Amino acid sequence: IRCIGVSNRDFVEGMSGGTWVDVVLEHGGCVTVMAQDKPTVDIELVTTTVSNMAEVRSYCYEASISDMASDSRCPTQGEAYLDKQSDTQYVCKRTLVDRGWGNGCGLFGKGSLVTCAKFTCSKKMTGKSIQPENLEYRIMLSVHGSQHSGMIVNDTGYETDENRAKVEVTPNSPRAEATLGGFGSLGLDCEPRTGLDFSDLYYLTMNNKHWLVHKEWFHDIPLPWHAGADTGTPHWNNKEALVEFKDAHAKRQTVVVLGSQEGAVHTALAGALEAEMDGAKGKLFSGHLKCRLKMDKLRLKGVSYSLCTAAFTFTKVPAETLHGTVTVEVQYAGTDGPCKIPVQMAVDMQTLTPVGRLITANPVITESTENSKMMLELDPPFGDSYIVIGVGDKKITHHWHRSGSTIGKAFEATVRGAKRMAVLGDTAWDFGSVGGVFNSLGKGIHQIFGAAFKSLFGGMSWFSQILIGTLLVWLGLNTKNGSISLTCLALGGVMIFLSTAVSA
């Protein structure tokens, strides 16, 4: 259960009878995928790494000078000259100064003066180019299975845990398959586009800190620079940016070097996208990844198990997540596992009318040892309800109150669905055939309105939902006002479609 501690969480529900669903994975976010007769899966884009970055340009932001020398000439005696002028490691300046009897010249006039100092770069920052084909995306998957609280967001041991898996995709191999043991396998067909235009970005490294910066900004930095990788004795261009020549006297000129420019660069980098280094690879934390999940090989585990009949206890007080759902960790005293956990939410304890829904599909106890633990997640209705676990006299209950409203949740879900469709863009549509167009249209309606429909009408039977949709269509056909007619027709059509397409 990876997503319960992530604030940016998206719930995606598969269409009834569908074998695939489109998701948008982004750094700092987590996606929970639910479908009829399929286990619930949490998917998170953990890291995006980039390798084989080529150094484009380096800037010196802290330097020192040494070996200063000057040469001067009297008027009419030609130009002052130093051998160091031809050495690229030196920074030199030529000027004219007033000369006369007082400073060793027989004539009054302008004399030539040249001053040089050896330039040494102490600290530099480097910009590297990123090729999209060198990106690698690491995705962690977790099935809502027989897990306890100690396994949440624990990325170790996934090789031997059938509840978890790690997959890596690249532009050259965008397809992967996550093996989930008894739950089958989940196929991923990803489109490795981060949403960032790397043709316009460089990877900047300064003092063990890293950013993504725009090329134009990078090339306009007014500091000494050299092109390409460091060859040991780089040729620094624009050395004068960190060196200041003071007022010249008759035979000498003082040279000083400016202080470190790291603070000024940090100020200019305010708002830039931060990154990290992992050995020789860069780690990015921006952008998104679009994936199509193929769920035809994914299956529920323990459908044929019998119900657990022994007593359950709450190991922890049920807690609310950031998303309005409830996490419950229970301990089973029996030894008759594997068995299914009898769990439901009810409005009252007399009729036990089921409300809400299970995020953890078909929760089971897989071990036959005593005191096995299991964590599950529920989506309670707004208002008061009861969490009921167990059967008969051994069942345990917990009162729950959820604040908020169904309308607010439906609106929030619609906005999130619209954002998801905007990110998917043209990849969500198939114009290759008439059937493809209608299929894409259905998927689009489901992406945007599916979660809201589930919130508003999830407790009704599909037949009642179709009746309401048919009534809206009838009202649309018999209303003389054009805008009201079109609105009723659209709402009725969407409702009829979703009542037959969205899983219960």
Rank of each mutant, 00 (worst) to 15 (best):
D200E: 15
P363R: 01
A241Q: 03
W474V: 09
P224I: 08
S122Y: 14
V328I: 15
M277H: 05
F218G: 01
V50H: 02
H235P: 01
L212Q: 07
Q147E: 13
T254A: 11
M375S: 14
L25W: 11
L472G: 02
F497E: 12
V326F: 04
H401P: 03
K38V: 06
A422G: 00
H398M: 08
V423K: 11
D197L: 15
D384F: 12
S306T: 07
S58D: 13
L273M: 15
M295H: 10
A264F: 11
F453G: 01
F11M: 12
I389F: 10
K297Q: 09
S86T: 09
N103G: 02
A272C: 12
N103E: 05
Q465L: 04
M495K: 10
C116R: 08
K84L: 07
C190L: 03
D155S: 13
N478A: 02
L212F: 05
L141P: 13
E168F: 05
E191P: 05
L180T: 04
H398E: 15
L289R: 00
M374V: 08
I130D: 07
L141Y: 06
W225P: 04
M15W: 15
V213C: 08
T351I: 07
G106H: 02
G337P: 13
A54P: 03
P224T: 05
V388K: 01
E159C: 01
D247R: 00
A63W: 12
V265C: 14
S146Y: 01
V391Y: 00
W462V: 09
W400D: 11
V343C: 15
M345R: 00
K283W: 04
A333D: 00
P224A: 06
S499V: 03
S372W: 05
N134M: 12
L307F: 15
T335A: 14
G458S: 14
N154Q: 12
S7V: 00
L212G: 03
E62Q: 09
V21T: 00
Y61S: 01
S16Q: 03
K215C: 05
L424N: 08
K84W: 07
K373W: 00
I496D: 05
E244Q: 14
V91L: 15
K283E: 15
D384T: 10
S368V: 12
E367R: 00
S499I: 07
K281V: 12
F457C: 11
Q77T: 01
P354D: 02
S385P: 14
T487G: 14
H401R: 08
L107R: 07
G334C: 04
Y137P: 01
V257F: 08
T32A: 09
G383R: 08
G17Q: 06
L135Y: 04
T170M: 13
S368E: 00
R420S: 05
E191A: 08
S403L: 13
V494D: 12
A275Y: 01
A311G: 12
G187T: 11
L293I: 15
L424S: 02
S440I: 05
P234V: 15
V169G: 00
W211F: 13
V255P: 08
T309P: 09
A248W: 08
G442F: 08
I445G: 00
G436N: 10
K340I: 06
C190D: 09
M206I: 14
E159G: 13
D379P: 03
K297M: 11
F245E: 08
T470Y: 11
E44Y: 04
G195D: 14
Q131Y: 05
A428M: 07
W101M: 10
S483Q: 15
D42V: 06
F11W: 11
E44W: 09
G150M: 12
F457S: 14
A35G: 15
G29E: 06
A268D: 03
R9C: 10
A333L: 11
K166G: 13
K239V: 03
S64E: 05
G287F: 03
H226C: 15
G150A: 15
T351L: 14
D220F: 08
S185Y: 14
A268N: 11
D220G: 12
S142F: 03
W429V: 04
A69Y: 06
H214I: 06
S142C: 03
F285T: 03
G100A: 08
C105Y: 11
G442P: 03
L258E: 05
E168C: 02
Y386M: 13
F312E: 08
T194A: 14
S16H: 09
W400E: 09
S122R: 12
E159K: 08
T19I: 14
F314Q: 02
E367Q: 06
V256W: 14
L242S: 09
M374T: 14
F453R: 05
N163S: 14
S122I: 04
V265F: 07
D426C: 06
M206V: 15
E240W: 02
G337M: 13
C488W: 11
P132F: 09
V415M: 15
A275T: 15
D98E: 14
K118Y: 02
V502P: 13
Y158F: 07
A35Q: 04
I65A: 02
L293N: 03
W462H: 11
L358M: 01
F245L: 09
A275P: 01
S483R: 15
L298Y: 10
K215E: 11
I221T: 13
I65E: 01
I445W: 11
H148G: 05
C488T: 10
F218E: 08
Y81G: 14
H27M: 13
R2W: 13
S112Y: 04
D22Q: 09
L107G: 03
F285L: 12
R299G: 11
H210K: 02
Y386L: 13
G287R: 00
E274H: 09
N154L: 02
R193A: 03
L298I: 14
I468S: 14
L307P: 13
I221M: 15
S86P: 14
N172C: 09
V50F: 14
T115L: 02
G102K: 03
L188D: 10
H148C: 14
A452E: 07
G111M: 09
A229P: 15
S66W: 10
D67W: 12
A248N: 05
K480E: 12
S70W: 11
Y386E: 02
F285N: 06
H399A: 00
L293V: 12
T32H: 02
L25A: 03
S485F: 12
G195Q: 06
E136T: 15
K93Y: 07
K215G: 01
G392F: 09
W20L: 00
C60K: 08
K239H: 08
M34R: 05
A227P: 14
D430V: 03
K395S: 11
S112A: 13
A229H: 02
M151N: 07
L96V: 14
L358G: 01
P354T: 14
K394Y: 03
A452S: 11
V114N: 05
T88S: 15
P338G: 03
T267K: 15
R402A: 11
G282C: 15
V169F: 07
L378K: 05
I387F: 15
D336Y: 08
I396V: 14
D98P: 03
V153F: 07
G417W: 07
L242Y: 07
N52S: 12
D393E: 15
M125T: 12
Q36R: 14
T325N: 05
N481M: 13
V330D: 07
W474M: 14
R2Q: 09
F382T: 05
D336T: 13
A264D: 09
P363E: 06
V330Q: 06
L196A: 09
Q344S: 14
G104K: 05
Y137G: 02
A410N: 08
H266C: 13
K123R: 14
K297T: 02
G435K: 14
I221Q: 07
C116A: 04
